[in-house]
Nucleic acid binder design. Structure first.
Length: 275
DNA sequence: AAGAATCACAACCGCGGAATG
DNA sequence: ACATTCCGCGGTTGTGATTCT
């Protein structure tokens, strides 16, 4: 018996979302919270499948999303995490608050991949490209398996069974091609066992962990001064309120009355209590 | 100016796994 | 133990924007 379609295909709209649809979805979720996605389209009055609604919300409408291009630090973090985790975009995204797996995946495919190739680094294995020609087999295994210096360091089994190095330095990873500060940042992360473990344990997002980790390190210099690195909820909600692409009046978001504001505050409090 | 090529990103598709009955 | 349902993930495609010829 085949798998049932995620939704009734008949009458289900596909393609780009309109401002009207966005408005309906946002209003619904702000009022009711995220519940059963399958039921959302019906309840919100949308002719979309639940999956499409979830995607639209998580990738574009969520108020805690950070807009704009990835910063240098974020990009470097993505490269480093990719070297350890491979194409597990959701895992990587979970370490970058305000960024989605889709966004990171797209950025990887359109920017970082090319950048690494240009730098002579295989974006799959994170090893120098000329080295790849001599070890063809390595392209078939996971990046983590091919991570340099594995023999020198003790290994830690991740929650998903992938072997990683708990203290591998990034000397032959892309970090060597980045700025000295970035290398230092990555080395610092790599040498911190608790941080590395947290990478596997779905705990505090890495960036926040870094902030809490040691306020005398270079990380503080690099990230805390860059307030665009991690946005506050207020910032992001203001994005929502500003409704960047479509004017607030298009949305009818003069409707952001006390009820919605308190919803946002409640979500905010929940988020804060998590960390 | 116009068409072709390329880029960037939003959205879709299909699968795997967890939850449930 | 098995079937079914749903969610989330990663790969891929579609399309508008931009650059090139």
């Amino acid at each position: 018996m085949g798998r049932q379609p995620c939704c009734d295909k008949l009458g289900v709209k596909k393609g780009p979302w309109t401002a009207e649809e966005d408005k309906k979805l946002i209003n619904f979720i702000l009022t009711n919270g995220q519940c059963c996605w399958r039921a959302v389209p019906k309840l919100a009055g949308l002719r979309r499948c639940g999956k499409s609604c979830r995607l639209r919300w998580t990738n574009y409408l969520r108020p805690d999303l950070k807009r704009g291009l990835l910063t240098e630090q974020e990009e470097q973090l993505v490269i480093d995490l990719h070297a350890r985790l491979g194409n597990r975009w959701s895992k990587i995204a979970s370490r970058l608050p305000g960024r989605t797996d889709n966004e990171i995946k797209n950025h990887w495919n359109t920017h970082i991949k090319k950048k690494l190739i240009k730098m002579g680094i295989d974006p799959i294995t994170h090893e120098p490209l000329n080295k790849q020609t001599t070890s063809q087999d390595s392209t078939n295994s996971s990046p983590a398996d091919n991570f340099p210096h594995a023999e020198n360091n003790h290994e830690v089994k991740g929650t998903d069974g992938v072997v990683v190095n708990s203290e591998e330095n990034s000397s032959s990873s892309p970090a060597e091609n980045s700025s000295g500060e970035d290398s230092l940042l990555l080395d610092s992360i790599c040498s911190d066992d608790s941080l590395m473990n947290s990478l596997w344990l779905d705990e505090t997002p890495l960036v926040e962990a870094l902030w809490e980790w040691d306020n005398t390190t270079v990380i503080e210099e690099n990230t805390k001064n860059d307030m665009s690195f991690v946005p506050s909820w207020e910032d992001n909600c203001s994005w929502l309120l500003d409704c960047q692409d479509f004017g607030i009046h298009d949305f009818g978001f003069n409707c952001f009355n006390e009820k919605e504001s308190s919803t946002i505050q409640t979500i905010d409090m929940k988020e804060n209590s998590k960390h």
